[in-house]
Design a protein around this nucleic acid. Structure first.
Length: 789
RNA sequence: GGGCGGUUAGCUCAAUUGGUAGAGCAACUCGUUUACACCGAGUAGGUUGCAGGUUCAAGUCCUGCACCGCCCACCA
């Protein structure tokens, strides 16, 4: 076994490449003692036998992760206590986008974890006060619908059969199980998250944050209750937000119906019973003889009705006949027209999708079955003029449960995005944060997409009729309404049955995880506020000094997939602007989607899913990480094949063998003293220095794919293929001076590369590090980065 | 309908913001069994989608076009 140790003064001497580790060692702490002990043995002894075998990730990765975790150094407080990080070091924080507790992690999560871990490890090594806070998301509707599906499949029961409490218990059990799986998977990837600060979007602390947020916004008039047209999923019996809708194309028949003197077109005759408004464009010369507000008697499905002519610019003159009738209760466009002209709205379809009494003999029939019968009646009455069979109809479905959406008018809770508060609006705040450059989006062009979305933003419907989630903190007693953080005193209060959109709680994520609106006693020894005391000072409008919220917010980076830019990123900006009057993060890094080798989305039905856990088991976490990083620029989708992962396993092994070569050829080298260097070696060291700077710059610029590729190139094709190959004759030759110089150089470059590679391939580098003579006692995880930023 | 990307070697993708187009797979030739066959040395492969423009200089900037993909949207 090796017993040698590289001394800090030696590191000083060579160059800034390998920076002075000792400068960070606080004389009063134990780390320094390790160094003192280490200084006595600086001679490289015989190589560890494990290098005679190929590198095997499976035998090392779990053990290494445990050691990291046991060290406590994932927690920045511990790093400060151990003297590894300066007390006043600049903070660098990332709050992990919480995976949904709906099952397993997929490759998209693996990309996210790999990218963030690189940033975190780099910054930790660079001496920053680095926090990566993990957590999971209850994902309300997604989780509930998954459990509902299983419940029906296994027991043929619905949630109503179980009742609210029993059902919630089932969901919670499922969520717990998913959570444990996910935590395990996060560890497998090697993510250096601070588990001591782990959060859940539905735990006690986050619930308090949600209720506080709701109350504050309600008091400012930013949350209101109103009757509006919403996306109703009759299957799941809940509303769904606009963003959760997935449009599907369907071949359908388009019907032309006689409506008095007009011909109207529709794909949905079954909704037309109550249609008593006939709408046309004011500029349409074909209908100039009809005036706005004019009434006429029309023979319709169930007899004569009085129709009113409405002129509105929403009508497309080119489409169909340029005339339509409207169903305001069940169509968003129609609803808007009705609102503009103050028209009656009548419900035709109930919340279960069945026709109401207005349909007369069709009452109680589900709309999915009513169409042919109604068409038959229309035909018999001579109201059906013609049909177009080649029509593609777009239907709205719930992306979470696949139910067909039936728009309905319903009383719901909304966030008003245009309401003024403190001289601004939520919409304006969201725009300004990015437009004014306070937040940088990578890649840059997503700014345009973001603005486009903001400009078209409507009030956000936040209430859901599902059971799993944050209960709306509103209580009713007769006509009284109470909105508060805690339940009101006194008898007879009933809480609102609805729950909140899952994005409401995730919107608070960057600060609810950091203790807002209260501190829960993290690291009290580091002059935090005492447990339970507010950490946000409303009178000053800023966090109490020294609290997690004060130190780590705004977070440095939000790294996530571009597909949730609107769902989540925008909403975090909204919430942070309002509640903290601050941005939630300085940089948004958006990664692409992981697709299969043909560029198709990975899905169970296509059977092309590559499971990250499979990959880490077969090829190791390091190889899996590299395969996801290299060749993946920000915002661009990554094509992944098993071959690619396999390829990077070779890299780990190559590094392993480089180490074997260097150690077996430097036996006896006194690493504490630098020998006189040959010209070639001086040049090699200078070049490696330049290379290290390039890698550092690439990481600083968030060009992680470039940094990874450079490392790969250098290690394999410069270090191994050129430097090591050229070393062979020198090492076997008689020139002792050249030999010593080269041994020293090889060793130095090995150490340099192990450090630079650590954020990318943490396991194999840590494993090698543990076998290097000099560093046995000190983990690579907290080694100093070899280049000063 | 509106918006955003992409088009570079056979395949997958880079190119540090205008300065001699690169890498990994794949192919071909040769070598190598004591660091690594999970290896090495080399070869071949490009009018950077098309057409113009700006510039000493364009894959990169501008204009137009053609495909491919994605997002948003109230054609009933």
């Amino acid at each position: 076994m090796l017993k040698a140790t590289l001394s800090p003064p030696f590191l000083h001497r060579i160059s800034p490449i390998v920076s002075p580790i000792i400068s960070r060692a606080n004389p009063s702490n134990s780390v320094n003692l390790l160094w003192k002990k280490a200084l006595f043995s600086a001679i490289i002894s015989r190589m560890d036998d494990k290098f005679l075998k190929p590198y095997d990730p499976n035998t090392t990765e779990n053990e290494i992760y445990n050691k990291w975790e046991e060290s406590g150094f994932f927690n920045p407080d511990e790093c400060i206590q151990a003297g590894i990080t300066e007390k006043d070091a600049r903070p660098f924080s990332i709050i992990l986008p919480p995976p949904n507790v709906t099952g397993n992690l997929h490759m998209g999560h693996a990309v996210m974890l790999a990218l963030q871990d690189i940033m975190i490890r780099y910054n930790r090594m660079s001496g920053k006060r680095t926090l990566w806070l993990p957590g999971t998301d209850h994902a309300a509707i997604a989780t509930q619908s998954k459990v509902e599906k299983e419940l029906y499949k296994k027991e043929k029961k619905t949630r109503h059969d179980l009742g609210r409490d029993e059902f919630i218990a089932r969901v919670e059990a499922f969520a717990k199980e998913s959570h444990d799986t996910i935590v395990n998977q996060i560890k497998k990837i090697g993510a250096s998250v601070d588990w001591s600060r782990e959060a859940f979007t539905l735990d006690e602390n986050r619930s308090l944050a949600v209720r506080t947020a709701f109350k504050n916004m309600y008091d400012d008039g930013l949350i209101y209750r109103g009757s509006r047209i919403v996306n109703w999923d009759p299957k799941m019996q809940t509303t769904v937000s606009d963003d959760e809708i997935e449009w599907k194309e369907e071949k359908a028949t388009f019907y032309y119906l006689k409506y008095g003197p007009f011909t109207i077109g529709t794909a949905r005759p079954e909704t037309k019973f109550g249609d008593k408004y006939v709408v046309m464009h004011p500029d349409d010369s074909r209908y100039k003889e009809y005036t706005h507000g004019q009434t006429l008697e029309v023979e319709w499905i169930n007899g004569l009705i009085t129709a009113t002519v409405i002129k509105d610019e929403a009508v497309d003159m080119e489409f169909g006949t340029g005339v339509m009738t409207i169903t305001p209760w069940h169509d968003a466009t129609d609803f808007d027209i009705a609102e503009r002209h103050k028209l009656d709205k009548e419900q035709i379809i109930d919340f279960k999708g069945k026709l109401l009494p207005i349909a007369e003999e069709f009452e109680g029939i589900h709309i999915s079955k009513a169409r042919p019968e109604i068409v038959k009646k229309l035909e018999e009455k001579g109201l059906l003029e013609r049909v177009d069979e080649n029509y593609t109809h777009r239907i709205a479905t719930n992306s979470r449960g696949n139910g067909v959406i039936e728009p309905q008018i319903k009383e719901q809770w909304f966030v008003d995005v245009n309401k003024e508060f403190r001289g601004t609006t939520l919409k304006k705040e969201m725009r300004d944060a990015v437009e004014g450059g306070k937040i940088t989006i990578i890649p840059d062009h997503f700014k345009k997409t973001y603005f486009h979305w903001i400009d078209n933003l409507r009030d956000w419907c936040i209430s859901r009729q599902i059971w799993y989630g944050h209960r709306i903190p509103v209580w009713y007693k007769g006509s009284e309404v109470y909105v508060g953080v805690e339940e009101p005193g006194g008898d007879g209060w009933k809480q609102d049955l609805d729950t909140l959109d899952t994005w409401f709680s995730s919107g608070l994520w960057t600060f609810s995880t950091l203790g807002w609106p209260f501190d829960y006693g993290h690291s009290a020894e580091l002059s935090r506020s005492p447990q339970g005391k507010p950490i946000f000072d409303d009178t000053q409008g800023k966090p109490v000094p020294g609290s997690d919220l004060d130190v780590y917010h705004p977070t440095a980076v939000l790294e996530t997939g571009y597909d949730i830019l609107f769902f989540w990123v925008a909403r975090m900006i909204l919430m942070s602007s309002y509640h903290l009057d601050d941005i939630p993060f300085k940089t948004v890094y958006l990664h692409g989607l992981v697709r299969d080798e043909k560029g198709q989305k990975m899905s169970k039905s296509l059977g092309n899913v590559i499971d990250p856990l499979d990959m880490t088991e077969k090829y190791g976490a390091d190889a899996t990480r590299l395969s996801l990083i290299i060749g993946a620029t920000a915002g661009t989708d990554v094509k992944l094949s098993e071959d690619k992962v396999r390829g990077y396993k070779h890299f780990s092994n190559k590094l392993w063998n480089i180490t074997r070569f260097v150690l077996s050829n430097t036996e006896g080298l006194d690493s504490t003293s630098q020998p006189p260097l040959t010209k070639e070696d001086t040049k090699i060291l200078e070049e490696s220095n330049t290379f290290a700077k390039e890698v550092t710059e690439a990481i600083e610029r968030f060009q992680l794919h470039l940094a990874g590729e450079k490392l790969y190139q250098y290690v394999w094709h410069t270090f191994a293929d050129k430097i090591i190959e050229e070393s062979k004759p020198i090492l076997e030759g008689d020139d002792e001076k050249a030999k010593k110089s080269r041994q020293y150089t090889l060793y130095t470059i090995l150490v340099l590369n192990i450090k630079l590679l650590h954020p990318f391939t943490p396991f194999v580098t840590e494993e090698i590090w543990s076998s290097l003579p000099h560093h046995k006692e000190n983990m690579l995880l907290v080694e100093k980065w070899p280049v000063d930023a």
